[in-house]
Amino acid sequence: MRPRKIMLLGEIGVGKSSIARRLVFGRFESDYKPTLGVDVYSYEIEPGLFPGGAAKFIIWDTDGNFRDNILSHIYIKQAAGALIVGDVTRQTTLESMVHLGHGFMEAMPGRYCGFLINKTDLVDASIELPPALAQSTIPIVRTSAKTGENVREAFLGAADVIHRRGL
C-alpha cells in the first residue's frame, strides 16, 4: 500500500496541528503550541471506510509562517493533495485560504485540494463565508478539531478522490 502525502496548509493558529492530532490520536489539546518547520504524521485508513479500500496517509502539518512560500518549498514535492485550513472566527484566514488553494492547484495541477473551515464549535453554523470562498469550486468541509466533527470525513473524502484519480 503506497503511502500518499497530504499537506495541511493555512495561516498560523487555524488548527492544522489540532486537526492532525485529532485524526491520528483522537485527542484535542487546548494549549496552543505553534508548529516550527513541519510535523509529519502517519495515518492509516482501514478497509471499508471509503470505496478505494485501505489507504495510508503521510500528513505534513506545516508551519503557518510559510504562507505562500510553502508552494515553492521542497516539502510540497510529490504531494497527492492538500487540505487548506481556515479559522472560521478569523475572516482573514478564510480569505487567504482561497489564495492558497488556487496557488496549490497551480503548483500541483491535478492533485486533490480541499478547504477545511475549522473551529465551527465556536460559532453559529449559519455563518457566512467570504464570497470568494463560497464561490470557489474547491470542496468545503466544516470541521471542529475540538469536537472531532467531520475531521475524519474530510480525510476520507480526500482519500476517495485521490484513489479515483490514481494519484
Binding site: 492532525a20 492530532r21 491520528v24 490520536f25 485527542r27 516550527l36 518547520g37 513541519v38 510535523d39 509529519v40 504524521y41 502517519s42 502539518d61 508551519d63 521542497i74 516539502y75
Partner: peptide, 18 residues
C-alpha cells in the same frame, strides 16, 4: 545539497525532536 530543516516525525503524543 538538499536540506529538509525542522522536521518532526510524530509517532506519539509526546513531544518529538525536530
Amino acid at each position: 545539497e538538499l536540506r529538509l530543516p525542522n522536521v518532526s516525525i510524530v509517532t506519539t503524543e509526546a513531544a518529538e525532536p525536530r
